[in-house]
Amino acid sequence: MTGSVDEFSLYVLDIVMNSVRAGASKIDVKLFEDGEYLTFTVTDNGCGMTKEQVEKLTDPFFTTRKTRAVGLGVPFLKMLSEQTGGSLAIQSISDEDSKTDHGTTLKAVFGRNHIDFLPMGNLPETLISLIQGSPEIDFTFYHRLSGGGEVRLSCAELKQVLGDQVSLADFEILSWIRGYLDEAYEEANL
């Protein structure tokens, strides 16, 4: 993003917000650290994009929004991936093309040890922001760290425990999720 954005977790937030705005009810976020690479995958069941929209997606002067004339999220992510020796690919099926199987998968690979790569930053805060903004969405999060440790979160599972009356966006629930994630990262980093 801009020079002031110095953590990868903000890119994660920005890119996952695209899935939120695509009207997805399920969003899977995966971070997989393997050797010198980090693979970031977001899969959603949102409205998807046409072939033409996907082709234009990495063009910063293409956007579907009405409030400003540029779309910057994906071009910034692509730039970061290419700068670090990785790549970015997007597959999408538009809801115009399929009523049942529409959605988008974005997969970006980064060189973790490259000098231009960023610190991971505060991933729990990114997840909390997403859940606070869209408690109705079933986010699934999986992060495999380089040392083999794993962090998982499934909003669908939490909702099964909580039932219909309690929202994931309630402060007490968000606090529990934050505590859970902080502890899971502590354990995964051991």
Binding site: M1, V5, L10, L13, R68, I128
Partner: peptide, 23 residues
């Protein structure tokens, strides 16, 4: 505001400050 422009300018800590502070 939580679009790319907002996030890049520091919206995430602002959001969380409101969520925590209001409580």
């Amino acid at each position: 505001g939580m679009a790319t422009c907002g996030i890049a300018a520091g919206a995430r800590p602002v959001l969380n400050a409101f969520v925590e502070g209001v409580n």
